[in-house]
Design a binder for these strands. Structure first.
Length: 573
RNA sequence: CGGGGCGUAGCGCAGUCUGGUUAGCGCGCCUGCCUUGGGAGCAGGAGGCCGGAGGUUCGAAUCCUCUCGCCCCGACCA
């Protein structure tokens, strides 16, 4: 360790918000070069390599083959697929000396499809699954959280090509299982969840989320493990519990009430002295240049991803002030479905609402005792509200649970989107020329490393899962001046390496406390201490990082003890 | 892109409002002494184009203009 380049830092860096970012800097894993751009130092790179190795082994095991595509790709390919215009600013575009345009690869559907369309022409050569582990570049609007949302990051991306949906499904299922094996082997607690496929399309997609309270995305899952329902917040649906409406009566006529300057659900429900679920919240959205009204129960938020999915558009937007005024003849905050001329869609949370309160489409007025069917009509009930954890599981009706997660992988059934756009075809048995059916499967490698830290750390530092720990064992030589002890340490160091352990020897000339603190910060699963008890009694101490369990043993017992600890800590699948 | 903030030693910061000796402090680094089971102590030392350019002034880290970079909130996220 006197020679190792592991620059640890005692102080928490000022610009690091989340734990993983702080610890990755403090433990000397990486250093920032620019916004969202990091140099991986030896200690950090070791972890990345371990994760990559697990991914390689499992991908190869699943029959995928590794290749490596260029990071730079010509603009023509992106224009051909249409994404040159669609992708937006996240796609980093650059020009070469001849003024030709290129993109830094944020993902490689175009490039792999181009390769396969020129090389694979027959159904006899299908299916095929190709992957790479490579640096990606996405010019994120706002990079943050260290490597969790970096611009440059390491990703494994795989692409499969098939003759038909059934074959795709088969590979998809294999990849699904492979991902479970990968994240299990990485020692992570995770959940595969049903997810929104976004602009990429396709019916079925799963995200793999590492469970951590600091996660950016919310997940909902059934409290009953045997049911197994789990979905991202964008995709989750639930059975919405019905509410009480005894404060109003269906038999009373609709009544216009002056509500000066009361715009929000909170203000209006306070004014009427009722709970928020009495209100019919009316939001105006612009969908494909048309204004539509979307209703939800006052206590429910609209899920725009669901709206996009319903309207089959990649883009919906809340209407601007002008549009609201022209659609409702009232200022923002007083919209309601009664007498509205734009199409009205209602969230299913309104199905069980017999009577409610809503905006009057007149500034400073709301309507009370509003009854659907009597006072207004809706075009359609759709599921567009955010699921909450009081909702029932859509599969088994038991209550849903909510937790936070970090998305580290996603598997997609792409279908023919890219093969059609790029005219990538093969010949079937009859000689017909048909577009490939495709799947794609990504894992954020660097993000997985950060997620592992988010999930496993304490106040002293990182606690690596054994399988991805940069070193399995750290030997703390407390007194470097005792020559005989030093020699012993070196013997143990060599022996353990020969037994297949990754070992770090801390032979630095610093005080013991310094070494203990550093060892904990680095998170190495097993500490071996050669200190007082070794000098006096010939005993070495072996301590686990995870639970602090300590063993005092004779040197010759070390291999057997480590073997036990390894078996205990290493995950096998 | 909108809003807010910050660029001063390797790192973390003070000084800027109200211009004026030699630009400070903590950590780290180097030397020595001392210490050695949870980030010790003492003494000495090195280290700065005060982000960059232009301007105002007798004089600028400090005031003005422009510019570059970074951070936070929001929108965005195959």
């Amino acid at each position: 360790m006197t020679r190792a380049f592991i620059p640890t830092v005692k102080e928490t860096p000022a610009d690091a918000e989340v734990i993983s970012h702080q610890l990755m800097i403090r433990a000397g894993m990486m250093r920032k070069l620019g916004a969202g751009i990091y140099t991986y130092l030896p200690f950090g790179l070791k972890v990345i390599r371990k994760v990559e190795q697990i991914i390689r082994e499992e991908m190869n095991r699943a029959g995928a083959q590794e290749l490596l595509m260029p990071i730079l790709s010509p603009a023509e390919l992106w224009m051909e697929s249409g994404r040159w215009n669609v992708y937006g600013k996240e796609l980093m575009r650059i020009k070469d000396r001849h003024n030709r345009e290129f993109a830094l690869g944020p993902t490689h559907e175009e490039i792999i499809t181009d390769l396969v369309r020129t090389q694979i022409k027959s159904y006899r050569e299908l299916p095929v699954n190709l992957y790479q582990i490579q640096t990606k570049f996405r010019d994120e609007i706002r990079p943050r959280f260290g490597v969790m949302r970096a611009r440059e990051f390491v990703m494994k991306d795989a692409y499969s090509f098939h003759t038909d949906e059934a074959s795709l499904k088969e590979t998809y299922d294999i990849m699904f299982e492979t991902y479970k094996r990968i994240f299990t082997r990485c020692g992570l607690k995770f959940k595969p969840v049903l997810a929104d496929s976004g602009a990429i399309g396709g019916d079925t997609t799963h995200e793999f989320s590492v469970l951590a309270d600091s996660g950016e995305s919310a997940l909902f899952y059934c409290q009953d493990d045997s049911c197994g329902y789990a979905a991202s917040s964008e995709f989750a649906t639930g059975i919405i519990p019905a509410m009480e409406y005894s404060a109003l009566s269906v038999d009373n006529p609709m009544e216009k009430i002056n509500t000066p300057n009361l715009k929000t659900v909170d203000e209006v429900s306070d004014f009427f002295g009722v709970a928020k679920h009495y209100l019919i919240k009316t939001l105006l959205y612009v969908v494909e240049d048309k204004v539509v009204a979307v209703l939800s129960r006052g206590d429910r938020e609209i899920n725009e991803a669901k709206l996009q999915r319903y309207f089959k558009t990649p883009f919906v937007e809340l209407a601007g002030e002008q549009q609201v005024v022209s659609a409702t003849n009232a200022s923002v905050g007083f919209a309601g479905p009664v007498g509205l001329s734009v199409p009205v869609y209602a969230d299913i949370s309104l199905k069980d609402m017999p009577v409610g309160i809503t905006g009057a489409n007149e500034t400073d007025y709301h309507l009370k005792n509003v009854v659907c069917g009597r006072d207004y009509t809706i075009n359609e009930y759709i599921d567009v509200s955010m699921t909450v954890c009081a909702d029932g599981c859509p599969w088994c009706k038991k209550p849903l649970q909510e937790c936070r997660g970090i998305e580290v992988g996603q598997v997609f059934q792409l279908g023919k989107k890219y093969s059609k756009a790029l005219n990538a075809t093969y010949h079937d048995e009859q000689g017909n020329e048909l577009p490939f059916v495709m799947g794609c499967y990504g894992i954020g490698v660097t993000r997985t490393v950060a997620a592992a830290i988010e999930q496993s750390h304490d106040k002293d530092g990182i606690i690596w899962p054994y399988s991805i720990a940069p070193y399995h064992v750290i030997i703390l030589l407390l007194n470097i001046d005792e020559t005989s002890v030093r020699q012993q340490a070196e013997v143990i160091y060599t022996e353990l390496q020969e037994l297949g352990y990754d070992v770090l020897l801390d032979d630095r000339d610093v005080r013991p406390g310094f070494k203990f603190k550093d060892a904990d910060l680095l998170g190495i699963p097993i500490k071996i201490v050669l200190g007082k008890s070794f000098s006096s009694e010939g005993l070495i101490e072996v301590k686990k990082r995870s639970d602090g369990m300590m063993f005092k043993i004779k040197p010759e017992e070390l291999p057997a003890l480590l073997d036990n600890l390894r078996r205990e800590m290493d995950v096998t699948v």
